[in-house]
C-alpha cells in the first residue's frame, strides 16, 4: 500500500508507559499548527519521571516544535496553535487555569545556542530566584546561586569571577551557565533543545556527563540531532519524522533493534 505523506503514522514501540506511577508528562493526540500548516500530527507519548528521554529525527521533523509545546513556549509565536492534551502530573497544562509563568517555573528550558543574559554570572543565575521571589535575603540568594552553579558543574571554574559578565565565558561554560540558570528555580522537568549543537566535543562531553548527573533530580527531555548523543545520555528515545512520532522505545531497543523501517534507515545513516 502506498502511503500519502499526509497519512498519520501510528506510533509503534512503547509510547505509553505501563507503570502509571512513573509518568511525569503525558501527551495525547497532540497536533501543532503554524497558521494552516500542521507541524505535529497526532502525537501521543508518555515521559517518565527522573529519566532522560531523547527526541531524535531529521531536521525539520518537528521535534523542537513539540518540545516547546511542553512548557508553552509556543505561546510566544502568534500563528502557533496547539491541539490535544498535554498533562504534567495529570494536570492539563493547556487548561485555562494554568498559569504559563507557574508552569515554566516547573518546566525549565535550555536552548540550542548558549544565551546567557548580558549580565554578570551571578546575576544570570540569580535572575530566576529574584523574579519568583524564592530567596528571602541575600544569603539565601547566594546559596541558591552557588548550589545551582555547583549542580551545573561550573562553580569551581567561576567561583572567583561571579561578577564577570556571563557572555565572557567559553561556549561550553556559557551553556552550563544556562543550565545553572534553568535549575536555579528548581524545576521538575528540564527541556533541552539541542544543547550541544554549538559546542566542541570536549564541552559536549562535559554537558553529557552533567545531564547524566542531573537525571537523579530532574526529568529531562533532550532534543538532539546526534544519535550517538541520544544513545549515550538517554534511557528512552522517541523518533520523529515529518511531524509524526514514528517510534518510541527504550534507547537500547531503538538503536539495536528498531521496528520501523524509517527508524532503521535513520539510525543506520541512510538519511538525516
Amino acid at each position: 500500500m502506498v502511503r500519502s505523506r499526509d497519512d498519520i503514522v501510528r506510533t509503534i514501540g512503547k509510547p505509553l508507559l505501563a507503570d502509571d506511577e512513573r509518568v511525569k508528562i503525558s501527551c495525547r493526540n497532540v497536533n501543532v499548527y503554524y497558521g494552516e500548516k500542521r507541524a505535529i500530527r497526532e502525537v501521543s507519548v508518555d515521559i517518565a519521571e527522573q529519566e532522560v528521554t531523547a527526541f531524535i529525527g531529521p531536521s525539520g521533523c518537528g521535534k523542537s516544535t513539540f518540545l516547546r509545546c511542553i512548557n508553552r513556549m509556543n505561546d510566544t509565536i502568534k500563528s502557533c496553535r496547539v491541539e490535544g492534551e498535554i498533562t504534567l502530573d495529570r494536570e492539563d497544562i493547556y487548561d485555562r487555569n494554568v498559569d504559563p509563568v507557574l508552569l515554566r517555573a516547573r518546566i525549565g528550558m535550555v536552548f540550542q545556542k548558549p544565551n546567557p543574559f548580558p549580565k554578570s554570572i551571578f546575576e544570570n543565575v540569580a535572575y530566576g530566584p529574584r523574579i519568583h521571589g524564592l530567596a528571602r535575603n541575600k544569603s539565601e540568594l547566594d546559596e541558591i546561586v552557588i548550589t545551582s552553579l555547583e549542580k551545573a558543574g561550573l562553580f569551581s571554574e567561576v567561583k572567583d569571577q561571579l561578577d564577570h559578565p556571563g557572555t565572557g565565558l567559553s561556549g561550553g561554560q556559557q551553556q552550563r551557565l544556562c543550565i545553572a540558570r534553568a535549575i536555579s528555580v528548581q524545576p521538575e522537568v528540564i527541556l533541552m533543545d539541542e544543547p550541544c549543537s554549538a559546542l566542541d566535543p570536549i564541552a559536549t562531553a562535559k554537558i553529557e556527563e552533567l545531564i547524566d548527573e542531573l537525571r537523579r533530580n530532574f526529568t529531562i527531555i533532550i532534543v538532539t540531532h546526534s544519535m550517538q548523543q541520544a544513545a549515550r545520555v538517554s534511557q528512552r528515545t522517541a523518533f520523529f519524522h515529518l511531524g509524526n512520532l514514528v517510534e518510541v522505545d527504550d534507547t537500547n531497543t531503538i538503536f539495536v533493534n528498531p521496528e520501523h523501517k524509517l527508524t532503521q534507515d535513520y539510525i543506520t545513516g541512510r538519511y538525516g
Binding site: 512548557n71 513556549m73 510566544t76 509563568v101 507557574l102 508552569l103 515554566r104 517555573a105 525549565g108 528550558m109 536552548f111 544565551n115 546567557p116 543574559f117 535572575y127 530566576g128 523574579i131 519568583h132 544556562c178 540558570r181 534553568a182 536555579s184 528555580v185
Partner: peptide
C-alpha cells in the same frame, strides 16, 4: 526566550 522559559512575565 531564555527569560520567558524561566517563568518571567
Amino acid at each position: 526566550d531564555a527569560s520567558l522559559s524561566i517563568g518571567a512575565t
